[in-house]
Design a protein around this nucleic acid. Structure first.
Lengths: 258, 258
DNA sequence: GTCTATAGGTGGATAGAC
DNA sequence: GTCTATCCACCTATAGAC
């Protein structure tokens, strides 16, 4: 850091502001000028520090995700060390994966709910460079947690576990995105705690904790649901998506092993 | 329709192309020129037929959502008529709400998986005009289904039901968006059936059906999960998100009433 | 590291002829 | 209803002085 003034300050200020604006408007709808204007830095400073708008977005995520996914690996390591070779309980695995994330929402120094919302909103962006970036950032963690779930649920087909991992990720990411129709239609729900835009109050901390309390049982219930009957028979769409599917034997799912 | 040529054809062609391109690139990253280029119509035609880019997006959704939400209301009416005053089973309600949507994915004339993906990707867009639009389109349906779920689960706090409705919407919308990290990280999952972009093959139909078979049990399992213990006590984040919560009495959740 | 100035391009929208 | 031509706001990125 050769010449003048703040340097590190400028970099961090740009990242903080970019994080908030990308969250509020999305990547495409946020211009460099909006960011530099709000951060009170020169337009050229962004390209000096990060190189391009794409690289800026990547850096906004990298500084949070490398911490998050590192913590997730540590949490899993710790659990597996405690278990001493035995399979983990699904609830432990979910707690390590989703709980670690949701706790970021309570910590402003880790981005708080601003980052959580940004993450939820960005995970469904179609832009190629974003998906490629996320794939790299998540590869190791997803792999480790997938294997842990396979071991925890040995009687559930692996493909089924992967599907349900999708669904769990979706339930969480949509919930933290906080953009869904229910928020506007009904007063009830996520909307009654945090303001719409980027309000960083004490309410956000409460929201993160409450969200965790609500979400975790839902995810666990979904993960442990009876397996579907896979019938590729009729052309008529199956009308019985009831709980009539194969019940997984109790020892594996409903009793001890939860 | 006064003067010349196709008229209706042009309108529909623009909508079809816009639907696909908005799905592939997102709203902001899709330009009017991309749309008119692919649809082989003049740039001015879009503004003539729809007035603006925002209005075009609204119309892309309106023609599908008015059908979808109409069907959802009909399905619920039918179920309630059959039940003759009794409360519906949660599985019936979910089937009517989510099954109706997922069946659109099997029908190319209703947009097929292209529309489903677009919907999943757009539900988390932060743009104000989009959220306002969705709120209006969904208001009636959400309200009716919320009440049906309240009646179906009289022992579950209404706030809890609304939260779980959020989570279910999220799991589904994320799954149909088909943009998540798992797709890229692992070969397993949603990615092994349909091509990434906008391929409209027979594979998409199979994908929609398979998705429904997998998703429905997951949602039902989450909806019927044991209630969380709501403890606003310690500052230490609760480490026991286990299934250790209050068990809802069997008659309401686990037995008949599924 | 910061700044001004600007290149070089693309965006949505419209006027007006046919 | 369709098309050409055009306006002009705004974008990302960079060159080059300090």
């Amino acid at each position: 850091m050769p010449d003048q003034k703040s340097g590190q300050d400028t970099r961090e200020r740009i990242l903080d502001i970019a994080e908030r604006l990308f969250m509020e408007n999305g990547y495409e709808a946020t211009s460099m000028r909006m960011i530099t204007g709000a951060a009170e830095v020169n337009l050229a400073a962004v390209n000096y520090h990060f190189g391009s708008k794409e690289a800026l977005l990547r850096e906004v995520f990298r500084r949070r995700l490398s911490w998050l996914n590192g913590e997730r690996l540590v949490a899993l390591d710790k659990l597996e060390a405690q278990a001493g070779g035995a399979a983990l309980k699904p609830s432990q695995i979910l707690e390590a994966f989703f709980g670690t994330l949701l706790r970021m929402g309570e910590d402003e120094s880790l981005g708080g709910m601003t980052f959580l919302r940004l993450l939820g909103r960005t995970l469904t962006e179609p832009a190629e460079f974003i998906r490629t970036f996320f794939a790299g950032e998540y590869a190791q963690v997803i792999d480790r947690y997938k294997l842990a779930l396979f071991r925890a649920l040995p009687d559930v087909p692996k493909a089924e576990i992967v599907w349900r991992l999708h669904f769990m990720l979706g339930a969480m990411s949509y919930a933290i995105a906080g953009t869904d129709v229910l928020q506007v239609v009904t007063g009830c729900g996520l909307g009654d705690l945090a303001g719409e835009g980027g309000s960083d109050g004490a309410g956000d901390t409460a929201l993160a904790r409450r969200l965790a309390q609500r979400l975790m049982p839902f995810l666990l219930g979904g993960l442990r649901a009876p397996l579907p009957q896979l019938l590729d028979v009729a052309h008529k769409p199956a009308v019985t998506h009831d709980g009539a599917g194969v019940q997984i034997h109790d020892s594996g799912i409903n009793a001890q092993n939860q």
